[in-house]
Design a protein around this nucleic acid. Structure first.
Lengths: 190, 190
DNA sequence: CAAAAAACTTAAAGTAGTTTAAGAAAGACT
DNA sequence: AGTCTTTCTTAAACTACTTTAAGTTTTTTG
């Protein structure tokens, strides 16, 4: 069950067999039921999660009481509240399984040991985060420069499977539009 | 002139004197005039830039021909097109000085050498990127859940100096509203 | 497999922000 | 110091999207 994460890491940095064994000994595989939370607002975030199988959403409850989806995480993505993990303060985020999923758990304590014994892992995460950060800047660009309709069409054309995979109200929230408006967009044949 | 960057790095990881000397030998200080570009769309991005003094904006030209400010970088921030730096493909972004500035240039080749000789630097950038990524997720949240007016007031109250520092049309673009609308918001006394 | 809960649809009225256009003020260069 | 360029302002007409409300379909669960 570690094969997914090990091969992902190997795409960025080399790993020798002892390192792989150490990883396997300190990482933890966890099955997560649909709608189960890995993190809830108010809790202390204690781990980073690698999605080996399934789909998660990172969301928060706005001051108006609505759920706002900030980020989705599917296979080969890491998902967590990095700020909360670092600060040790109660998180403002929820991380929830959108479908039955499997994650590899990297606990904060394990992380410290692993970074010390396998310095290459710092390199791996640096690169993973460079990508993630770039992706967010690109997203900001789309949010400001595409209408809701254009964004939806782009998602639908670029990630047709993903659009089918998550409930429409979550996708609407992620795109920053109401579920009613997304429903209307879908009804319209272009 | 390296003191700013060295003390920033030391806030995250320890550095011994030889490492500091190596850094000083491979980093480059560069004065940048107001409106001068460190990167233009179509060029290959060759470096990451640490803002020692001054202010930059990362922007792009939209399909409609308008400038869209994606990110500002002030003192102690790194600014670059990480995706372009990694891929080696022509960038879609511009990085321009908003005011007379001083940057420390970390060239791609120097980066490779430094990461190899000072593994702690990977750790430094991992942490810098964790912050930057978190900040972008928080920003996405604000973009979706605050009106333009609320966002402007938050900026004004939280970063009063910064709001004075950049031209209003750039701030408007960063906030995702038109300069005309921002002007109207400012005129309104609350 | 029935009942309840969750997710999706439709449509009308309302609003936050854009667009356009023109003028005023501030900054920069010779 | 004066001209040219850049930045900021004002206001009216317009639009992409929200809100509200009610009904329909799909999924989950005992």
């Amino acid at each position: 069950m570690f094969s997914e994460i090990l091969s992902h890491i190997r795409r960025f940095v080399p790993l020798d067999p002892e390192e792989e064994a150490l990883l396997a000994s300190l990482l933890e595989v966890r099955e997560v039921k649909k709608k189960e939370h890995l993190l809830q607002a108010g809790e202390i975030c204690k781990a980073n999660y690698f999605v080996a199988k399934g789909c998660f959403r990172l969301y928060l409850i706005t001051t108006k009481g609505a759920e706002q989806v900030i980020q989705f995480g599917i296979e080969d993505w890491w998902i967590t509240d990095y700020a909360g993990l670092k600060s040790g303060k109660p998180s403002g985020f929820y991380v929830q399984a959108v479908e039955p999923s499997t994650v590899v758990v990297l606990n904060k304590e394990a992380e410290e040991v692993l970074f010390e014994k396998i310095p290459q892992l710092e390199r791996y995460f640096r690169q993973v985060l460079e990508r993630a950060y770039s992706a967010q800047l690109t997203r900001i660009h789309y949010v400001f420069n595409l209408t809701g309709e254009e964004q939806y069409k782009m998602m639908r054309d670029k990630y047709p499977d993903f659009v089918q995979r998550v409930p429409q109200y979550m996708l609407a929230s992620f795109l920053g539009i109401t579920p009613e408006f997304l429903s209307m967009l879908r009804a319209k044949k272009d």
